[in-house]
């Protein structure tokens, strides 16, 4: 740094007298070097001397006076006087000792750093605050404006849950039993009943009997909700267990009910013939067949 105008320089031009101490004349640092940051920053008054590195010792005993009173440097610098300057051959240019330097050029870089730090601090703080406030506010609004489930849909039904579709004998119609089998083939007569069946809940009933003397001993009941909604068919035989007519009645009934399925009708007929005189139950083709000896009956209902 050059001395202010009017202040004296040392003979070699490397120091200038500030009135109290010798100050090094700092050459400009190479362009772009870190030292450039400190360009123009003078050592604080008095402080370089405290460090004892950058400030050379006074050139002579008269150095403590004002230049106007006495010349600060020896006229003929001797070896002792030259020695301190030799020390300055090393790096005499130390950075400013602290931020307390009064010159405005020394405040700028540190102030910039402080400004940047403050900016980052404020930004981070603002983001955290916005995040927390936004989160709390959003959650509160979400909870306040959304009702919990007060009426969810009913759970799905398991596969074996009984349904109305299972109430009727599959593929069985009233005509298939009453007309095709009993009336046409065996000359039975059938009569409808409007009374619902208390047991199955069927809306309509039909009772069929033989036209001959056997009408007192054999009968077939058909319970239904409609022509193709047969709920139950029951054959009753009072001719006694092991009576062939009863066995034939039960076997033919099984054959008729399973007649839509050719492979199953024979199986059903065989089963009914073999179990006509005992208590047994089976399910064939969605139809549950149950026999009992007393009363001697066979009943067909949907298998579930």
């Amino acid at each position: 740094m050059a001395a202010p105008p009017g202040w004296p320089y040392s003979p070699d031009g490397r120091f200038w007298w500030d009135g109290a101490a010798w100050q090094p004349v700092q050459p400009p640092p190479p362009l772009g070097s870190p030292a450039q940051q400190n360009l123009g920053v003078p050592p604080p008054p008095g402080s370089p001397a405290q460090r004892g590195v950058t400030v050379p010792p006074p050139p002579g005993p008269a150095a403590t006076g004002h230049p106007s009173i006495a010349s600060p440097w020896p006229q003929t610098p001797g070896p002792q006087a030259a020695q301190p300057y030799a020390v300055q051959q090393g790096p005499p240019y130390a950075p400013p000792p602290d931020a307390g330097a009064p010159t405005p050029t020394g405040v700028a870089p540190q102030g910039r750093r402080r400004g940047t730090a403050a900016f980052v601090l404020v930004t981070v703080g603002t983001l955290i605050a916005a995040l927390a406030l936004g989160g709390v506010t959003g959650a509160a609004v979400g909870l306040a404006t959304t009702e919990p489930v007060t009426d969810a849909s009913a759970p799905s039904f398991p596969g074996r849950f009984p349904t109305a579709k299972q109430r009727y004998l599959p593929k069985v119609t009233v005509d298939m039993v009453a007309v095709n089998w009993l009336q046409a083939a065996n000359s039975w007569t059938c009569a409808k009943s409007a009374a619902p069946d208390p047991l199955t809940g069927a809306r309509m009933g039909m009772i069929c009997r033989p036209s001959d003397a056997a009408r007192l001993h054999m009968s077939v009941f058909i319970w239904s909700d409609g022509p193709d909604k047969v709920m139950s068919v029951m054959a009753d035989c009072k001719l006694g267990v092991r009576a062939k007519a009863c066995t034939s009645l039960f076997a033919k009934m099984a054959d008729t009910l399973l007649s839509p399925d050719r492979t199953l009708r024979a199986k059903a007929e065989t089963w009914a013939g073999e179990n006509a005189d005992r208590a047994a139950v089976t399910a064939i083709g969605g139809i549950r067949l149950q026999t009992s000896p007393r009363p001697h009956r066979m009943e067909a209902v949907p298998a579930i």
Binding site: A130, G134, G135, T137, G138, A139, G142, E147, V149
Partner: peptide, 22 residues
């Protein structure tokens, strides 16, 4: 950030509430 956080937490709270039974 406030709006984004608010929207996110709102959606989360709403979805959570809808799973809850009264």
């Amino acid at each position: 950030v406030f709006l984004l956080a608010g929207l996110g937490s709102y959606a989360f709270a709403r979805a959570d509430r809808e799973q809850d039974t009264k």
